[in-house]
């Protein structure tokens, strides 16, 4: 059966890289990847991806500015339970709120908030580069990846989840950083799988096969 994968276009700059990586990972499968700003297409999609770079409020405003998109996401992801992957700020938007340049409401799918990282030991911010990601055993998105596989991060803010059960993977950067979240059919990565070479493509392929 052909499955459609909707990559949500709400004006985020890195859309093209994300789309190309999903197309590469989907090659030879039945998945059809489409970049779309159409809420109806998102409602109909079998899988949904929310990329994002920039500031939390900017991205949330961009998402809200697409008429009907928030409702479409709520319907497809929250109510219909379609597999969802948020990437970087796309993952952060899953939180209840972000406290970057003032407090801003998020999608509220993951209990917790997004705030500035304050790594111990005078480490540099942004957290930039390849860092080891330790996933909880049995997480489908990390299947086939080595324990502690390095992934590419570039961020100054992180999601602090209220329930540890929602944290699927962590990285250590002067203290634990939420590297991935998962709550039922909703997953998100702080790192960029679309920029993490073979390991990242593997994670994307896992997402395309994921049956939560």
């Amino acid at each position: 059966m052909v499955e459609t994968v909707a990559i949500v276009d709400y004006g985020s700059g890195n859309l093209r890289s994300a789309a190309k990586a999903f197309e590469r990972a989907a090659a030879g499968t039945q998945a059809r990847v489409a970049v779309t700003a159409d809420p109806h297409a998102v409602r109909r999609a079998d899988r949904i991806v929310l990329p994002g770079v920039g500031a939390f409020a900017d991205c949330m405003n961009g998402l809200t500015a697409v008429a009907g998109m928030r409702d479409a996401l709520e319907a497809a992801v929250h109510r219909s339970g379609r597999p969802f992957l948020g990437i970087c700020v796309g993952m952060q938007l899953m939180a209840e709120r972000g406290v970057e340049f003032g407090t801003h409401e998020g999608l509220g799918w993951i209990a917790g908030e997004v705030r500035a990282i304050e790594p111990k030991g005078g480490l540099k911010v942004p957290h930039m580069g390849w860092n080891d990601v330790t996933a909880r055993p049995g997480e489908a998105l990390f299947e086939g990846l080595a324990a502690g596989e390095p992934m590419y991060f570039v961020h100054s803010y992180a999601l602090y989840a209220q329930n540890s059960a929602d944290v699927a993977a962590t990285a250590d950067y002067g203290g634990p950083i939420t590297a991935a979240v998962r709550h039922a059919n909703m997953a998100g990565t702080q790192f960029h799988p679309e920029k993490s070479q073979a390991a990242g493509l593997r994670l994307i392929a896992n997402f395309l096969r994921w049956r939560p």
């Binding site: 700059g13 890195n14 093209r16 890289s17 190309k20 990586a21 960029h192 679309e194 993490s196 493509l201």
Partner: peptide
Amino acid sequence: CFMPLTVGGGVRTLEDIRKLLLAGADK
């Protein structure tokens, strides 16, 4: 190439940056 790409040289306007990011530059 699904890896981070920085592009520099002759960047003068916000529009230059936007075009590079849309083309696929990360930084």
